[in-house]
Design a binder for these strands. Sequence first.
RNA 1: GUGGGCGUAGCUCAGCUGGUGGUAGCGCCAGGUUGUGAUCCUGGAGGUCGGGGGUUCAAGUCCCCUCGCUCACCCCA
Length: 425
Amino acid sequence: MAVPAFQTSPGMRDILAPESARWRRFTQVFADVVEGAGYRQIISPIMEDLGVFTRIGEATDVVTKEMYDFVDKGGRHVALRPELTASVCRAFVEHRPVTPWKAWYSGSQFRYEKPQRGRYRQFDQVGIEALGADDPYLDVEVIALGWEFYRRLGLQQVRLLVNSLGEPDDRARYVEALRAHFAAAGDQLSEQSRVTLTKNPLRVLDSKRREDTTFVASAPTIDEFWSDAAAAHFEAVRDGLVALDIPFTVELKLVRGLDYYRHTTFEFQGLTLDSAQNALGGGGRYDGLVESLGGPPTAGIGFALGLDRTLLACDDEGTFPAPGATVDAFVVDTTGGREALVITAELRAAGLSADRAYEQRSMKAQMKAADRSDAALSIIVGTDELAAGTVTVRPMRGGEQSAVARADMVTTIQHLLSIHQNTEA
RNA sequence: GUGGGCGUAGCUCAGCUGGUGGUAGCGCCAGGUUGUGAUCCUGGAGGUCGGGGGUUCAAGUCCCCUCGCUCACCCCA
């Protein structure tokens, strides 16, 4: 038997440069936006007790069939986090920070699903959560930060959908109305939707099957069931969005997949992504989730934005490209490599980025490597330079090369780089 | 989880109805240029044709299984 060629597990992958640098920048841009609004980072464990996530809702697919759960060696039933809102609420209960508590996060999450483009078993999201404030204008702030993030990435083709699921009682009455409506359709409804109806009538609204479209279209809408308080809350949210000039569409049949939402829900759709995976991100208000995790009654709202799909949208719009990698200086040494070792260390100590070649390759090969590194300068050391105590500094993007005394090398290079930057700017 | 499509060098791909030695481009390495990259020329390395089994005188090409990717459903980021 030959040695097996290992591959990543299904739905999981390696992110190599330059895409990895793009991921890093993605998170950095997000952090800049939300830190500027008073949100502070939380780094939580990648797995939790299973119970933390079952509070998301026993009827959600995320809990019932997509959980990466197992029993560890201590007999604890744990799960890789399928989302981060529940973890953040668990942390809130555990640490009881002063409210309003505003946190942001980034990281991998796991759902055991059949992989598809833009849908992986290990996927990355960035998000924010604001706990302890029941204020419709906080809803607006949260939505606005998501909107601003897309703007910073350069995305234009994003649509914001908003809805309100009302208060728990409103929602319960609406669910009953939906159940009656779809039940009346009998077996004209698709078989799968009839199954969904028994578990979670709300999600029948999400069906994309042709048999269901007329019944979905004629279904009652949530606005008929809003209490006065719920209607007022949603009215304030819409008014706030208008005040901030954020365009939105009220979508009364917008049903998010997680059961804990009440009042405001919203979703950002990528208009260039015409596949079924067009949700770039979404969120909503989840007053009550903290309580279900053993904490005091606490209001909460937040969102999560998917990294993969957002980057696909960026690709489509030709924005936020992967940054190119470059280096200040590449050291070419034909005297054995010892000089290159010392010179790169000296340059790095001076705060410059420096790379070099290995294995004593030919000068031509080393120059080729210098070119490939996209270095601004190459620093050449041959037997002549070694004897004279100099190095040859060669600009790689045009200009004359020159001999420089070793003692003046760093300052000369710093000078050349600053000139170079000025001419490029 | 269900169904459709695909799987040939590091990458992008030729390979017609199974028939004599598996393409090409890019990339990589070396030489042309006894110290100078990005251009040009020449040469070279690199392939279990995803894996396994079967049909056949003969399989990259047909059949079955399997793995992976992809699209739709489901669901969602």
